[in-house]
Simulated assay, not measured.
Amino acid sequence: MASPTHQLSTRELEALSSKAITAKDTAYCPYSKFRVGACVLTQSGEYFLGANVENASYPVGTCAERVAFGNAVVAGHRDFKAIAVATDIKPAASPCGMCRQFMSEFTSPSFPVFMYDGEGNHTLTTMGKLLPHSFGPGDFTH
C-alpha cells in the first residue's frame, strides 16, 4: 500500500511498534494460535495495549485492535494519533472488517495504521484506505 504521511516522531513510532509486538505475548488464542498485538497512541502521548482474546465460541472473541481502543476509551481518551497492529505472519495482517468499523468511530480517514509482520517489518496505510466510504458518527441526523 502507498505510504501516507503521518505525524509521529521516530521515538513515538519505535514505542508504538515495540509495544504492539510485545502485546502479542499476552494474546489468548488457544484455538487459532494466531497471536495479534496492538498499541494505540493517544494525542496526549499515552499508549494503550491490546491483544486478541479468543473464546471456544469463535464469534465471542475480541480482536487486539478493539481491546486497545476500548482500554483507551475507558480511560477517558477519544483523540488518537496512530495504531500499530502486530502478527506473526508475513506479510502483515490488516485489521478485520469489524475492527475497521470500530476504529473509524474514533479516527479520521487520514489516521495512520501500521501493520507489522512476524519479522518486525511494517506496512503503513490509513483508515480511509482500509474502510472507504465508512459509516460513522457524522452520518446520524438528530
Score class of each variant (00 low, 15 high):
1 M>W: 08
3 S>D: 15
4 P>K: 08
5 T>W: 11
5 T>Y: 13
6 H>L: 10
7 Q>I: 01
7 Q>P: 15
7 Q>M: 01
8 L>Y: 04
8 L>E: 12
9 S>K: 08
9 S>T: 15
9 S>A: 09
13 L>V: 09
13 L>S: 11
13 L>R: 15
14 E>V: 06
15 A>F: 02
16 L>P: 03
16 L>D: 04
17 S>P: 00
17 S>Y: 09
17 S>K: 14
18 S>T: 12
18 S>V: 04
21 I>Q: 12
24 K>W: 00
27 A>R: 00
27 A>T: 13
27 A>G: 04
27 A>Q: 01
28 Y>T: 11
29 C>H: 02
29 C>W: 00
30 P>W: 13
31 Y>S: 05
32 S>I: 10
33 K>W: 13
33 K>V: 04
34 F>G: 00
34 F>H: 09
36 V>F: 03
36 V>P: 00
36 V>T: 14
36 V>A: 13
38 A>E: 03
38 A>P: 03
39 C>P: 09
39 C>F: 07
39 C>S: 14
39 C>T: 12
40 V>E: 02
40 V>P: 02
41 L>C: 05
41 L>Q: 01
42 T>I: 10
43 Q>D: 13
45 G>D: 04
46 E>S: 14
46 E>I: 03
47 Y>V: 07
47 Y>A: 05
51 A>T: 07
51 A>I: 11
52 N>I: 15
52 N>Y: 00
54 E>Q: 10
54 E>T: 08
56 A>D: 14
56 A>R: 13
58 Y>S: 12
58 Y>M: 10
59 P>Q: 09
62 T>V: 08
63 C>R: 01
66 R>P: 02
68 A>V: 06
69 F>V: 03
69 F>R: 01
70 G>H: 07
71 N>Q: 10
71 N>H: 06
71 N>D: 02
71 N>G: 05
72 A>Q: 05
73 V>A: 05
74 V>C: 06
75 A>N: 06
75 A>P: 00
77 H>N: 11
77 H>K: 13
78 R>H: 10
78 R>S: 14
79 D>V: 02
80 F>G: 07
82 A>R: 02
84 A>C: 01
84 A>Y: 06
85 V>Y: 00
85 V>Q: 04
86 A>I: 03
86 A>Y: 05
87 T>I: 04
88 D>E: 14
91 P>I: 05
92 A>Q: 09
96 C>I: 13
97 G>E: 11
97 G>V: 11
98 M>R: 14
99 C>K: 01
99 C>Q: 02
101 Q>E: 09
102 F>K: 05
102 F>L: 10
103 M>R: 06
107 T>Y: 06
108 S>W: 03
108 S>Y: 03
110 S>I: 08
112 P>G: 03
114 F>W: 11
114 F>E: 04
116 Y>Q: 12
117 D>C: 08
118 G>I: 05
118 G>E: 04
118 G>C: 06
118 G>R: 07
118 G>A: 07
119 E>C: 01
121 N>T: 01
123 T>P: 00
124 L>F: 01
125 T>R: 13
126 T>F: 03
127 M>E: 07
128 G>F: 10
129 K>M: 14
129 K>S: 13
129 K>N: 15
129 K>V: 15
129 K>G: 08
129 K>C: 10
131 L>T: 11
135 F>S: 12
136 G>T: 09
137 P>H: 12
137 P>I: 14
138 G>C: 08
139 D>I: 01
139 D>L: 02
140 F>S: 08
140 F>W: 14
141 T>R: 03
141 T>M: 11
142 H>R: 08
